[in-house]
């Protein structure tokens, strides 16, 4: 059981008048699926990058199990919106990258990569070059590459933002399947209200000017999927619509305040 805690962090980029994020707090535990929502420019990506250790907050602290985070680490693997795969490596080699960094032998790496290719439903695509894959496939390779590091936390910055609607839905259930099968904590940024509701165990609502956390809402639809209910039946539940209305309200309220 691992705990990732962002405690009252503020991030101020040098070239900007007001801070990107001010006094934001949130926590992610193993088994949590925390989703950050809010308008562009409210600091979602900044918070995620701070959790990853890619940027250092000006004040406040980021800790994992009480230990201060100073740099990125394989315990917090990141999936980026534009996959950020390495085009000089094929799909299998991309997935095995984290293991290569640790000095794992090529044979073991490939075996692990092939297991993960199967997990993200890309069997047989291991030898493909990155530019031969579609956007959805690339994003799945990116996900598999992050999972190969066997992270405690999976940090995802709008991982499905660039995908078409149908691919997106399939990826959402894939994310839920992987999250439910592994005891990892997920922190994800999204623009999609429905996506947030469907996936999250907790939704963190942010507001801009300066970026701050305005509300945290518990949600349980992802768990319902994990225990066997279909996405269609979840979305048909009036409770889903009601939750969406509440979430939208809290986003607008946050902005008005």
């Amino acid at each position: 059981m691992a705990h990732l805690v962002l405690d009252h962090i503020s991030v101020h980029y040098g070239n900007q008048a007001q801070p990107a994020v001010t006094q934001a707090s949130l926590s992610v535990n193993s088994g949590d699926f925390v989703v950050l929502v809010g308008r562009s420019g409210c600091g979602k990506t900044t918070l995620l990058n701070a959790a990853a250790g890619l940027i250092a907050p000006n004040s406040g602290s980021v800790t994992v199990d009480g230990k201060q985070i100073k740099a990125p680490g394989a315990d917090r693997a990141v999936v980026f919106q534009n996959d950020a795969l390495f085009p000089w490596l094929n799909a299998r080699e991309n997935i095995g990258f984290a293991l290569k960094l640790r000095g794992v032998a090529a044979k073991e790496r490939d075996a692990a990569a092939d297991r993960l290719l199967a997990l993200v439903k890309l069997e047989g695509f291991g030898s493909k070059a990155i530019w031969e894959l579609s956007g959805g496939m690339r994003q799945r390779v990116g996900l598999a590459r992050a999972l190969a590091a066997e992270p405690d936390f999976l940090l995802m910055d709008e991982p499905l933002g660039a995908l078409d609607a149908l691919t997106r839905e399939r990826m959402q259930t894939l994310l839920l399947d992987i999250w439910a099968a592994n005891n990892i904590g997920v922190l994800m940024v999204t623009h999609g209200i429905d996506e947030a509701l469907l996936l999250a165990t907790r939704i963190v609502v942010l507001a801009p000017g300066p970026g701050r956390v305005v509300r945290q809402i518990d949600a349980g639809f992802g768990r319902r999927y994990a225990s066997g209910e279909t996405v269609r039946s979840i979305k048909a539940d009036p409770a889903f619509n009601q939750a969406r209305a509440e979430l939208e309200d809290s986003i607008f309220e946050g902005e008005a305040a």
Partner: peptide, 29 residues
């Protein structure tokens, strides 16, 4: 070299030297 790729490698546990060897050098090839 793409900052996202560099960040991706760092988040996968790459040291500064590994980032240069495995990301920056191939990017610059």
């Amino acid at each position: 070299a793409s900052q996202d790729r560099i960040n991706a490698a760092r988040a996968l546990g790459a040291t500064r030297f590994q980032v240069i060897l495995h990301v920056i050098l191939p990017s610059a090839l």
